[in-house]
Amino acid sequence: MTSGLRVERFKMSDPTFDTSSPATGDAGLPKVSIYMPTRNRLGSMQAAVRSVLGQTYREIELIVVDDGSTDGTPAWLAEQARLDPRLVVHRHEEGRGACAARNVGIRAATGFFLTGLDDDDEFKPHHLASLVSYWQLLTGAGDDPSALYVQDELRSGGPVAYTHKIGRATAEMMLNANQVGNQLFAPRDRFLSAGLFDEAMPAWQDLEFFYRFLKMHGPARLLDLPSYVFDVTPRPDRISSKSKRKVMQACELMYAKHGGDQRHTLQRLLLEQVFSDYYGFRPDLADLRRFIGLGWWPRGWWRMARRWRAGGA
């Protein structure tokens, strides 16, 4: 295996792990459930499904939630589920949105561990085996991370690039940037206790959920391996939104839910997230005035003013 880690019969200090439970696979290893929402992306979805069913770690359950597809997705998924019982399909006759589909998949999962996959991304063959092995290594050494995350291989049709995520992610760090990416790997019960994805968020669904997750369960740890293939090709059908209106709405909701009494929280969200290089938005004069009016923060004012000037305002 590429990571150099070996999966043995699973051992955990957690007394709730029962090797005779449905969360355990036939080999006595913990079952990993993967949830994946999809809608009208037959080609990329097929590659995503195959990347999961082809994992070197075999004790898996892939839950695909078809959110009202009108292309060949339903027929193809039905045939694949007939061929491989590890694939479980749920279908919405009408689209309810990606977050609703994710939540259906999470609730339906029966594995001990849980993680997600977007329908235009892929797992490298060793992705799940490496995560289970690393979790086993950490817990065996007395460490108890809330979750794990990995580096991403970024594909856009040009040269392949890689992320450089930090080794430890906390809830506080998520206010400056999404340090995790778009997937966590953790025991399923932690996803449930964190409250699932907020279906009312117009954007930042991952960011908001991961913030709640890390706030409740503590820091997550990085497995420094680029085993998740993240498609960043610009396309109009992306789930992630780069509409300034939606991102600003998400920022306001994030602050309303989690701002509390933390100083400069809304200013940090605006400066580090909304007007970051990721979105490419530049503040206009109204944005700058509002930012200054939110509170005394000379350093933040100066940085926001620089971004305003860079936009040619």
Rank of each mutant, 00 (worst) to 15 (best):
L128N: 00
S51V: 08
Y57Q: 07
L148F: 13
N103P: 06
L62R: 00
V88K: 12
P145S: 08
V89G: 02
H127R: 03
T73N: 08
L137D: 06
V150E: 04
G97L: 00
H126R: 01
L137R: 14
F113R: 11
V64M: 01
L137K: 13
Y134C: 08
T110R: 15
L117S: 02
L137I: 07
T110H: 15
A108M: 08
W135F: 09
L53K: 01
A141I: 06
G116Q: 06
V52S: 03
V49C: 05
T115K: 01
V65I: 13
P74D: 06
A169M: 04
I60F: 10
R96I: 03
M173V: 03
D152H: 14
I60Q: 07
R102N: 07
G97V: 02
S130H: 06
V49A: 03
I166W: 11
N103K: 12
S146A: 15
Q80V: 14
N103Q: 09
W76T: 06
W76F: 14
D144G: 11
A48E: 00
H90M: 10
F112Q: 14
E79S: 13
M173P: 00
R96Q: 15
A129P: 04
V132S: 03
R168N: 09
E122F: 02
D121R: 01
A141Y: 12
L138H: 06
L77S: 02
I60L: 10
Y162Q: 11
L87S: 08
A101P: 05
A98W: 07
R82A: 15
D71I: 07
H90V: 10
G95T: 15
A75I: 10
A81N: 09
D71W: 04
P125F: 09
G72P: 08
S133T: 09
V89R: 09
L138M: 13
P74L: 05
G97D: 08
D71Q: 05
A141G: 14
D71H: 05
Y162E: 07
A47G: 04
A48W: 01
R82W: 01
A108N: 05
G158K: 14
H127F: 15
S69D: 06
D118K: 00
V160M: 04
V64W: 01
V132A: 01
L62G: 00
R86C: 09
E59Y: 03
N103Y: 10
L128K: 02
R86N: 09
F123W: 11
T56E: 09
V64Y: 07
L114I: 12
H92K: 06
A101G: 02
Q55Y: 13
P85Y: 05
R107P: 00
V89L: 06
K124F: 13
I63Y: 04
L114V: 02
A141M: 12
S130D: 11
G167M: 03
D143H: 15
A47D: 12
G68F: 11
K165A: 03
A171Q: 04
L117I: 12
H90G: 00
Q55I: 05
R107W: 04
L53H: 07
G68M: 03
T115V: 09
L148C: 07
H127W: 10
